[in-house]
Simulated assay, not measured.
Amino acid sequence: MKFAEFHAGQVIEAGPYEISERDILDFANRWDPQWFHTDVERAAKGRFEGLIASGWQTCGIAMRLVAMAALEGSESFASPGLQYVKWPHPVRPGDALRLKATVVEARRGSKDPSLGILRWRWQLFNQRGAEVLDLEATSLFQL
């Protein structure tokens, strides 16, 4: 999508993205090697009663869905960061994750009108409707 196509209140949906036990183990062993992400047997006895995905993996899945649904072919070139990130419920093997991205604000830069500034809330939900990710991102566009 081009920056001009975004407007406050707009909702963009994408997915599902299905995550497997192998996906969780591979990511965690490489990037977040905590036992509740890497040890199936120990995780089964833990607080979450089973293996869960890293929150950072969940963010990566959201980024992929956003890139494919909204940023492909756009003028987007960077992000200065996130306002917040929350993981209200865990992601488990077999979950099918769906994205809901809601545009909070789309405006041109006050000092540089060739800069598009997009603030948007990204939420991921599993197949049961439980929210597994909530964040607010800012994306920059070269107009």
Rank of each mutant, 00 (worst) to 15 (best):
E21N: 04
E21H: 03
R22T: 13
R22Y: 10
D23F: 08
L25G: 00
D26G: 04
D26W: 09
A28P: 04
N29E: 14
R30P: 02
D32E: 07
Q34Y: 12
W35M: 06
H37L: 00
T38P: 03
T38Q: 02
D39R: 06
R42Q: 12
R42C: 13
G46W: 00
G46N: 04
F48A: 05
G50D: 04
A53R: 00
S54P: 01
S54N: 02
S54T: 00
S54Y: 01
W56K: 08
Q57L: 01
T58R: 00
C59N: 10
G60S: 02
I61E: 00
A62Q: 06
V66S: 08
A67I: 14
A67D: 12
A67L: 13
A70M: 10
A70R: 01
L71G: 10
G73F: 12
S74R: 09
E75V: 03
F77A: 08
A78E: 06
S79N: 11
P80S: 09
P80A: 12
G81K: 06
G81Y: 05
L82M: 14
L82W: 07
Q83H: 15
Q83F: 11
K86A: 12
K86H: 15
W87P: 00
H89L: 07
P90A: 07
D95Y: 05
D95I: 02
A96L: 09
A96H: 11
L99P: 02
L99C: 07
L99Q: 07
T102P: 03
V103Y: 03
V103R: 06
V104R: 13
R107P: 08
R107N: 08
R108A: 08
R108Q: 13
R108Y: 11
S110D: 13
S110E: 06
D112Y: 10
P113E: 09
S114Y: 10
S114I: 11
S114D: 14
S114M: 14
I117P: 05
L118N: 04
R119I: 15
R119A: 13
W120C: 05
R121I: 06
F125H: 10
F125P: 00
Q127M: 07
Q127R: 11
D134T: 07
E136A: 11
L140Y: 01
Q142E: 12
L143A: 13
